[in-house]
Design a protein around this nucleic acid. Structure first.
Lengths: 181, 181
DNA sequence: AACTTTGTTCAAAAAAACTTGAACAAAATG
DNA sequence: CATTTTGTTCAAGTTTTTTTGAACAAAGTT
Protein backbone atom coordinates (compact mmCIF):
# COMPACT_ATOMS: atom_id res chain seq x y z
CA UNK A 1 0.00 0.00 0.00
CA UNK A 2 1.46 3.33 -1.07
CA UNK A 3 2.02 6.02 1.46
CA UNK A 4 -0.44 8.79 0.69
CA UNK A 5 -0.87 12.34 1.89
CA UNK A 6 -4.18 13.01 3.48
CA UNK A 7 -6.63 14.24 0.89
CA UNK A 8 -8.44 16.61 3.22
CA UNK A 9 -7.09 20.07 2.51
CA UNK A 10 -5.53 21.20 5.71
CA UNK A 11 -5.97 24.88 5.02
CA UNK A 12 -8.76 26.51 3.08
CA UNK A 13 -8.04 28.84 0.19
CA UNK A 14 -8.70 32.03 2.12
CA UNK A 15 -6.64 30.82 5.04
CA UNK A 16 -3.72 30.05 2.77
CA UNK A 17 -3.96 33.52 1.25
CA UNK A 18 -4.22 35.26 4.56
CA UNK A 19 -1.30 33.32 5.99
CA UNK A 20 0.64 34.34 2.92
CA UNK A 21 0.03 37.97 3.83
CA UNK A 22 1.59 37.37 7.22
CA UNK A 23 4.51 35.44 5.78
CA UNK A 24 5.29 38.44 3.60
CA UNK A 25 4.86 40.84 6.48
CA UNK A 26 7.21 38.74 8.56
CA UNK A 27 9.79 38.85 5.80
CA UNK A 28 9.43 42.62 5.67
CA UNK A 29 10.46 42.91 9.29
CA UNK A 30 13.12 40.23 9.13
CA UNK A 31 11.31 37.30 10.68
CA UNK A 32 11.34 33.80 9.21
CA UNK A 33 8.52 32.34 7.19
CA UNK A 34 7.53 29.87 9.88
CA UNK A 35 6.79 32.67 12.31
CA UNK A 36 4.57 34.37 9.77
CA UNK A 37 2.78 31.09 9.20
CA UNK A 38 2.17 30.46 12.88
CA UNK A 39 0.89 33.94 13.63
CA UNK A 40 -1.11 33.88 10.41
CA UNK A 41 -2.91 30.67 11.22
CA UNK A 42 -3.69 31.86 14.73
CA UNK A 43 -5.01 35.06 13.20
CA UNK A 44 -7.31 33.12 10.88
CA UNK A 45 -8.71 30.79 13.49
CA UNK A 46 -11.57 31.66 15.84
CA UNK A 47 -10.45 29.39 18.66
CA UNK A 48 -7.13 29.08 20.38
CA UNK A 49 -4.84 26.50 18.80
CA UNK A 50 -2.52 24.05 20.49
CA UNK A 51 1.05 23.31 19.62
CA UNK A 52 0.04 20.07 17.89
CA UNK A 53 -2.65 21.70 15.83
CA UNK A 54 -0.11 24.21 14.54
CA UNK A 55 2.30 21.44 13.60
CA UNK A 56 -0.37 19.47 11.83
CA UNK A 57 -2.24 22.16 9.98
CA UNK A 58 0.87 24.08 8.87
CA UNK A 59 2.82 20.89 8.14
CA UNK A 60 5.97 22.19 9.68
CA UNK A 61 8.22 20.57 12.24
CA UNK A 62 7.78 20.64 15.98
CA UNK A 63 11.11 22.40 16.21
CA UNK A 64 9.94 25.26 14.04
CA UNK A 65 6.71 25.65 15.95
CA UNK A 66 8.50 25.56 19.29
CA UNK A 67 11.02 28.19 18.28
CA UNK A 68 8.48 30.24 16.42
CA UNK A 69 6.14 30.39 19.42
CA UNK A 70 9.06 31.31 21.62
CA UNK A 71 9.82 34.36 19.51
CA UNK A 72 6.16 35.29 19.20
CA UNK A 73 5.75 35.11 22.96
CA UNK A 74 8.82 37.26 23.42
CA UNK A 75 7.36 39.83 21.05
CA UNK A 76 4.04 39.68 22.82
CA UNK A 77 2.43 38.66 19.55
CA UNK A 78 0.69 35.60 20.96
CA UNK A 79 -1.00 35.01 24.26
CA UNK A 80 -1.37 31.77 26.15
CA UNK A 81 -4.98 30.85 26.50
CA UNK A 82 -6.02 28.41 29.16
CA UNK A 83 -8.32 25.67 27.90
CA UNK A 84 -10.10 23.76 30.67
CA UNK A 85 -9.55 20.05 30.59
CA UNK A 86 -6.47 20.19 28.37
CA UNK A 87 -2.88 19.89 29.40
CA UNK A 88 -1.71 21.52 26.23
CA UNK A 89 -0.84 25.15 25.87
CA UNK A 90 -3.23 26.97 23.62
CA UNK A 91 -2.36 30.15 21.79
CA UNK A 92 -4.26 33.15 20.55
CA UNK A 93 -2.91 36.02 18.51
CA UNK A 94 -2.47 39.49 19.90
CA UNK A 95 -4.86 41.57 17.83
CA UNK A 96 -3.91 45.04 18.99
CA UNK A 97 -1.70 46.70 16.44
CA UNK A 98 -0.39 49.02 19.07
CA UNK A 99 0.80 46.17 21.26
CA UNK A 100 2.25 44.31 18.31
CA UNK A 101 4.25 47.30 17.24
CA UNK A 102 5.32 48.04 20.79
CA UNK A 103 6.55 44.47 21.24
CA UNK A 104 8.52 44.65 18.06
CA UNK A 105 10.11 47.97 18.86
CA UNK A 106 11.00 47.03 22.40
CA UNK A 107 12.44 43.70 21.42
CA UNK A 108 14.16 44.38 18.12
CA UNK A 109 14.67 48.08 17.82
CA UNK A 110 15.34 49.67 21.15
CA UNK A 111 18.34 47.46 22.01
CA UNK A 112 20.08 48.51 18.83
CA UNK A 113 19.41 52.16 19.50
CA UNK A 114 20.87 51.90 22.96
CA UNK A 115 23.99 49.96 22.01
CA UNK A 116 24.31 52.49 19.25
CA UNK A 117 24.78 55.30 21.73
CA UNK A 118 27.74 53.59 23.34
CA UNK A 119 29.27 52.93 19.97
CA UNK A 120 29.02 56.57 19.06
CA UNK A 121 30.83 57.57 22.21
CA UNK A 122 33.61 55.17 21.36
CA UNK A 123 33.94 56.64 17.91
CA UNK A 124 34.13 60.06 19.46
CA UNK A 125 37.22 58.97 21.34
CA UNK A 126 38.80 57.31 18.33
CA UNK A 127 38.42 60.43 16.25
CA UNK A 128 40.67 62.40 18.56
CA UNK A 129 43.43 59.88 18.15
CA UNK A 130 44.27 60.38 14.52
CA UNK A 131 44.42 62.53 11.44
CA UNK A 132 45.03 66.20 11.19
CA UNK A 133 42.73 68.76 12.72
CA UNK A 134 40.86 69.29 9.46
CA UNK A 135 39.86 65.65 9.13
CA UNK A 136 39.02 65.40 12.80
CA UNK A 137 36.73 68.36 12.37
CA UNK A 138 34.95 66.65 9.53
CA UNK A 139 34.70 63.41 11.45
CA UNK A 140 33.24 65.18 14.48
CA UNK A 141 30.75 66.83 12.25
CA UNK A 142 29.56 63.57 10.75
CA UNK A 143 29.36 62.02 14.17
CA UNK A 144 27.11 64.90 15.12
CA UNK A 145 24.85 64.09 12.21
CA UNK A 146 24.66 60.50 13.36
CA UNK A 147 23.77 61.60 16.86
CA UNK A 148 21.01 63.84 15.59
CA UNK A 149 19.59 60.91 13.62
CA UNK A 150 19.58 58.76 16.69
CA UNK A 151 17.91 61.44 18.70
CA UNK A 152 15.22 61.96 16.14
CA UNK A 153 14.57 58.23 15.94
CA UNK A 154 14.08 58.14 19.69
CA UNK A 155 11.65 61.01 19.58
CA UNK A 156 9.75 59.37 16.77
CA UNK A 157 8.89 56.24 18.70
CA UNK A 158 6.47 57.77 21.22
CA UNK A 159 4.80 59.65 18.42
CA UNK A 160 4.30 56.48 16.44
CA UNK A 161 2.83 54.81 19.48
CA UNK A 162 0.57 57.76 20.13
CA UNK A 163 -0.77 57.64 16.61
CA UNK A 164 -1.45 53.93 16.97
CA UNK A 165 -3.56 54.85 19.92
CA UNK A 166 -1.45 54.37 22.94
CA UNK A 167 0.87 55.28 25.68
CA UNK A 168 4.50 56.27 25.81
CA UNK A 169 7.54 54.15 25.56
CA UNK A 170 10.83 55.66 26.23
CA UNK A 171 10.30 56.85 29.75
CA UNK A 172 12.66 59.69 29.07
CA UNK A 173 11.78 63.13 30.14
CA UNK A 174 10.27 65.14 27.32
CA UNK A 175 13.18 67.43 26.52
CA UNK A 176 11.13 70.48 25.62
CA UNK A 177 7.82 71.52 24.17
CA UNK A 178 5.85 68.47 23.18
CA UNK A 179 4.91 68.35 19.60
CA UNK A 180 1.40 67.11 19.30
CA UNK A 181 0.28 65.51 16.09
CA UNK B 1 59.31 37.93 -2.86
CA UNK B 2 56.19 36.98 -0.95
CA UNK B 3 52.90 38.48 -1.92
CA UNK B 4 52.00 40.90 0.84
CA UNK B 5 48.99 42.96 1.71
CA UNK B 6 49.62 46.65 1.59
CA UNK B 7 50.80 47.84 4.96
CA UNK B 8 48.97 51.14 4.80
CA UNK B 9 45.83 50.70 6.79
CA UNK B 10 43.07 51.23 4.34
CA UNK B 11 40.59 52.44 6.91
CA UNK B 12 41.34 54.29 10.11
CA UNK B 13 40.01 53.08 13.43
CA UNK B 14 37.20 55.60 13.64
CA UNK B 15 36.19 54.94 10.07
CA UNK B 16 36.01 51.22 10.72
CA UNK B 17 33.85 51.83 13.77
CA UNK B 18 31.55 54.21 12.01
CA UNK B 19 31.17 51.91 9.05
CA UNK B 20 30.31 49.19 11.53
CA UNK B 21 27.43 51.32 12.78
CA UNK B 22 26.07 51.49 9.25
CA UNK B 23 26.56 47.81 8.65
CA UNK B 24 24.42 47.12 11.70
CA UNK B 25 21.84 49.66 10.68
CA UNK B 26 21.69 48.07 7.25
CA UNK B 27 21.10 44.68 8.83
CA UNK B 28 18.31 46.15 10.91
CA UNK B 29 16.42 47.19 7.81
CA UNK B 30 17.24 44.09 5.85
CA UNK B 31 20.05 45.32 3.65
CA UNK B 32 23.28 43.40 3.10
CA UNK B 33 26.54 44.21 4.83
CA UNK B 34 28.18 45.46 1.66
CA UNK B 35 25.57 48.18 1.29
CA UNK B 36 26.14 49.32 4.83
CA UNK B 37 29.87 49.41 4.15
CA UNK B 38 29.53 51.46 1.01
CA UNK B 39 27.19 54.02 2.49
CA UNK B 40 29.25 54.06 5.66
CA UNK B 41 32.49 54.86 3.88
CA UNK B 42 30.85 57.58 1.84
CA UNK B 43 29.46 58.98 5.06
CA UNK B 44 32.91 59.07 6.63
CA UNK B 45 34.66 60.69 3.72
CA UNK B 46 34.71 64.43 3.03
CA UNK B 47 35.05 64.14 -0.72
CA UNK B 48 33.05 62.17 -3.24
CA UNK B 49 34.43 58.69 -3.88
CA UNK B 50 34.66 56.81 -7.13
CA UNK B 51 33.69 53.24 -7.81
CA UNK B 52 37.32 52.15 -7.74
CA UNK B 53 38.06 53.88 -4.47
CA UNK B 54 35.17 52.04 -2.87
CA UNK B 55 36.43 48.70 -4.17
CA UNK B 56 39.93 49.37 -2.95
CA UNK B 57 39.32 50.86 0.45
CA UNK B 58 36.56 48.45 1.43
CA UNK B 59 38.30 45.48 -0.13
CA UNK B 60 35.16 44.09 -1.60
CA UNK B 61 34.50 42.95 -5.14
CA UNK B 62 33.48 45.13 -8.04
CA UNK B 63 30.30 43.12 -8.26
CA UNK B 64 29.30 43.97 -4.72
CA UNK B 65 30.07 47.64 -5.19
CA UNK B 66 28.16 47.79 -8.45
CA UNK B 67 25.09 46.12 -7.01
CA UNK B 68 25.34 47.99 -3.77
CA UNK B 69 25.50 51.37 -5.48
CA UNK B 70 22.58 50.39 -7.66
CA UNK B 71 20.41 49.77 -4.61
CA UNK B 72 21.67 52.91 -2.87
CA UNK B 73 20.86 54.98 -5.93
CA UNK B 74 17.40 53.45 -6.09
CA UNK B 75 16.85 54.35 -2.47
CA UNK B 76 18.13 57.84 -3.06
CA UNK B 77 20.78 57.22 -0.42
CA UNK B 78 23.68 58.27 -2.63
CA UNK B 79 23.98 61.04 -5.15
CA UNK B 80 26.15 61.17 -8.23
CA UNK B 81 28.65 63.97 -7.95
CA UNK B 82 30.28 65.27 -11.07
CA UNK B 83 34.01 65.62 -10.82
CA UNK B 84 35.57 67.75 -13.57
CA UNK B 85 38.26 65.98 -15.52
CA UNK B 86 37.26 62.50 -14.48
CA UNK B 87 35.27 59.99 -16.43
CA UNK B 88 34.42 58.07 -13.34
CA UNK B 89 31.21 58.42 -11.45
CA UNK B 90 31.72 59.86 -8.02
CA UNK B 91 29.33 59.34 -5.18
CA UNK B 92 28.29 61.27 -2.13
CA UNK B 93 25.95 60.17 0.61
CA UNK B 94 22.52 61.64 1.08
CA UNK B 95 22.73 63.26 4.51
CA UNK B 96 19.13 64.21 5.02
CA UNK B 97 17.47 61.73 7.31
CA UNK B 98 14.12 62.71 5.94
CA UNK B 99 15.11 61.88 2.39
CA UNK B 100 16.76 58.67 3.44
CA UNK B 101 13.66 57.51 5.26
CA UNK B 102 11.40 58.60 2.43
CA UNK B 103 13.49 56.70 -0.08
CA UNK B 104 13.37 53.60 2.02
CA UNK B 105 9.63 53.80 2.57
CA UNK B 106 8.87 54.52 -1.06
CA UNK B 107 11.10 51.76 -2.36
CA UNK B 108 10.69 49.00 0.17
CA UNK B 109 7.54 49.65 2.10
CA UNK B 110 4.90 51.24 -0.06
CA UNK B 111 4.99 48.58 -2.77
CA UNK B 112 4.19 45.92 -0.19
CA UNK B 113 1.38 48.00 1.23
CA UNK B 114 -0.13 48.45 -2.20
CA UNK B 115 0.16 44.85 -3.33
CA UNK B 116 -1.25 44.07 0.08
CA UNK B 117 -4.46 45.87 -0.75
CA UNK B 118 -5.02 43.75 -3.83
CA UNK B 119 -4.32 40.61 -1.87
CA UNK B 120 -6.86 41.58 0.72
CA UNK B 121 -9.50 42.05 -1.94
CA UNK B 122 -8.73 38.59 -3.27
CA UNK B 123 -9.09 37.10 0.17
CA UNK B 124 -12.41 38.86 0.48
CA UNK B 125 -13.63 36.98 -2.56
CA UNK B 126 -12.23 33.66 -1.39
CA UNK B 127 -13.99 33.95 1.95
CA UNK B 128 -17.38 33.98 0.29
CA UNK B 129 -16.64 30.73 -1.48
CA UNK B 130 -16.44 28.40 1.46
CA UNK B 131 -17.35 27.43 4.97
CA UNK B 132 -20.59 28.04 6.77
CA UNK B 133 -21.92 31.49 7.47
CA UNK B 134 -20.50 31.53 10.98
CA UNK B 135 -16.92 30.96 9.84
CA UNK B 136 -17.34 33.40 6.97
CA UNK B 137 -18.45 36.00 9.48
CA UNK B 138 -15.34 35.43 11.54
CA UNK B 139 -13.12 35.53 8.48
CA UNK B 140 -14.66 38.81 7.32
CA UNK B 141 -14.11 40.19 10.74
CA UNK B 142 -10.40 39.34 10.76
CA UNK B 143 -10.02 40.70 7.27
CA UNK B 144 -11.48 43.92 8.61
CA UNK B 145 -8.82 44.00 11.29
CA UNK B 146 -6.16 43.56 8.67
CA UNK B 147 -7.61 46.39 6.60
CA UNK B 148 -7.62 48.68 9.60
CA UNK B 149 -3.98 47.89 10.23
CA UNK B 150 -3.12 48.73 6.68
CA UNK B 151 -5.01 51.96 6.90
CA UNK B 152 -3.27 53.02 10.06
CA UNK B 153 0.11 52.21 8.58
CA UNK B 154 -0.70 54.44 5.64
CA UNK B 155 -1.74 57.26 7.91
CA UNK B 156 1.42 56.90 9.91
CA UNK B 157 3.80 57.51 7.03
CA UNK B 158 3.03 61.19 6.40
CA UNK B 159 3.22 61.85 10.10
CA UNK B 160 6.63 60.24 10.32
CA UNK B 161 7.79 62.33 7.41
CA UNK B 162 6.41 65.47 8.98
CA UNK B 163 8.23 64.81 12.21
CA UNK B 164 11.49 64.18 10.38
CA UNK B 165 11.01 67.32 8.35
CA UNK B 166 10.60 69.73 11.19
CA UNK B 167 13.55 71.70 12.47
CA UNK B 168 11.88 71.80 15.87
CA UNK B 169 13.60 68.59 16.84
CA UNK B 170 17.09 69.93 16.78
CA UNK B 171 18.98 70.26 20.00
CA UNK B 172 21.80 72.14 18.43
CA UNK B 173 22.58 73.84 15.19
CA UNK B 174 24.23 72.01 12.34
CA UNK B 175 27.87 72.87 12.53
CA UNK B 176 28.69 73.60 8.92
CA UNK B 177 27.48 73.80 5.37
CA UNK B 178 25.91 70.37 5.55
CA UNK B 179 22.37 71.30 6.30
CA UNK B 180 20.68 68.33 7.79
CA UNK B 181 16.98 68.59 7.18
C1' DA C 1 7.57 3.33 39.37
C1' DA C 2 6.78 2.73 34.45
C1' DC C 3 4.52 4.89 30.85
C1' DT C 4 2.45 8.71 28.27
C1' DT C 5 1.93 13.28 26.94
C1' DT C 6 3.79 17.67 25.90
C1' DG C 7 7.09 20.56 24.52
C1' DT C 8 12.27 22.03 24.14
C1' DT C 9 16.98 21.68 22.42
C1' DC C 10 20.46 21.35 19.22
C1' DA C 11 23.32 19.20 15.56
C1' DA C 12 22.86 18.36 10.94
C1' DA C 13 20.45 19.21 6.49
C1' DA C 14 18.28 22.38 3.48
C1' DA C 15 17.31 26.73 1.78
C1' DA C 16 18.12 31.50 1.14
C1' DA C 17 20.99 35.42 0.82
C1' DC C 18 25.25 37.44 -0.26
C1' DT C 19 29.70 37.89 -2.55
C1' DT C 20 32.94 37.02 -5.97
C1' DG C 21 35.23 37.35 -10.33
C1' DA C 22 35.38 36.56 -15.08
C1' DA C 23 32.96 37.67 -19.22
C1' DC C 24 30.72 41.26 -21.24
C1' DA C 25 28.96 45.97 -22.92
C1' DA C 26 29.35 50.87 -23.58
C1' DA C 27 31.72 54.78 -24.18
C1' DA C 28 35.93 57.57 -24.41
C1' DT C 29 40.62 57.82 -26.17
C1' DG C 30 44.48 57.60 -29.18
C1' DC D 1 38.97 51.25 -35.48
C1' DA D 2 41.67 49.12 -32.04
C1' DT D 3 42.46 49.94 -27.26
C1' DT D 4 41.65 51.38 -22.76
C1' DT D 5 38.66 52.77 -19.21
C1' DT D 6 34.62 52.20 -16.60
C1' DG D 7 31.10 49.76 -14.84
C1' DT D 8 27.39 45.87 -15.21
C1' DT D 9 25.78 41.13 -15.26
C1' DC D 10 25.31 36.66 -13.75
C1' DA D 11 26.74 31.83 -12.73
C1' DA D 12 29.20 29.72 -9.26
C1' DG D 13 31.01 29.75 -4.64
C1' DT D 14 30.51 31.12 0.13
C1' DT D 15 28.23 32.33 4.19
C1' DT D 16 24.23 32.84 6.93
C1' DT D 17 19.75 31.67 8.21
C1' DT D 18 16.09 28.54 8.69
C1' DT D 19 14.10 24.08 9.15
C1' DT D 20 14.08 19.45 10.49
C1' DG D 21 13.84 15.50 13.51
C1' DA D 22 15.71 12.70 16.95
C1' DA D 23 17.14 12.84 21.67
C1' DC D 24 15.90 14.68 25.82
C1' DA D 25 13.50 16.75 29.96
C1' DA D 26 9.48 17.77 32.70
C1' DA D 27 5.30 16.74 34.37
C1' DG D 28 1.00 14.15 34.42
C1' DT D 29 -1.28 9.26 34.44
C1' DT D 30 -2.11 4.65 35.52
Amino acid sequence: MPVTQSDTPILSAWETSMIDVFVRAAGLIGLPRSIGEIYGLLFCTPKALSFDELVERLQISKGSVSQGLKVLRQLGAVKLHYVPGSRRDHYQPELSMKRLVRGFIKDQFEPHLLSGSERLDNIDALIEEEGDEASRAHARNRLGTLRSWQQRTRKLMPIVMAVLGGAKFFDKEPTDEETII
